[in-house]
Design a protein around this nucleic acid. Structure first.
Length: 170
DNA sequence: GCCAACGTTGGC
DNA sequence: GCCAACGTTGGC
């Protein structure tokens, strides 16, 4: 069963449009230098998983589009390049320390889902990216949240069936 | 531009 | 191993 993730990028650095224009509409998610995000990419992010592409650190943060994982965790070789900005002197070929995945664009959202739209949706109250102080650049997203967000984005018609079925027990 | 929250570093 | 200092993230 595929999993779902939210990945953050500052659009001034790399935007969803940049991904659409990249060769094969694919990019390596390199340069992540946070152990928690590293562990997720190394151990959990797998081929076929769904990705919400989130534009962070702008006046109106937004989920711009969706992508899919086309290559699971593998060593981030940019840590080995002494001239690159992601160089880590502690990394070696034998002990790469840092890992990355490859993602390929699937589609821009018909209606980009802004942060305020996310905050206004009661069903998304516990979405990780909305939590104060959450800086993790790769975050797990439940299937329920995934569906709600794609629904807000005008990509699918239905909302989360689990939520509908559980409503009586709340 | 401000500043709260977080992760990392390094002295002890 | 503690924790203060620091740098970074990122919403507002």
């Amino acid at each position: 069963m595929a999993n779902y993730w939210l990945m953050k990028s500052e659009p001034g650095c790399f935007s969803f449009d940049d991904l659409l224009q990249a060769p094969g509409q694919t990019t390596s998610w390199d340069g992540v230098r946070n152990y928690q995000a590293r562990n997720l990419m190394r151990d959990s992010v797998s081929i076929g998983d769904g990705v919400l592409f989130y534009h962070s650190n702008i006046s109106d943060p937004v989920i711009a589009g969706t992508a899919r994982v086309v290559k699971g965790g593998y060593p981030d070789h940019t840590a080995l390049d002494p001239r690159g900005e992601h160089f880590d002197p502690k990394a070696t070929a034998q002990n790469p320390i840092w890992y990355m995945v490859d993602i390929q664009a699937v589609s821009a959202l018909a209606n980009p889902v802004t942060r305020s739209m996310l905050k206004n949706h009661p069903g998304l109250a516990d979405l990780d990216v909305l939590k104060k102080g959450n800086r993790l650049s790769v975050q797990p997203v439940s299937e329920c949240h995934w569906r709600m967000i794609l629904s807000l984005g005008g990509m699918i018609a239905d909302e989360c069936p689990v939520r509908r079925n559980n409503r009586k027990s709340h």
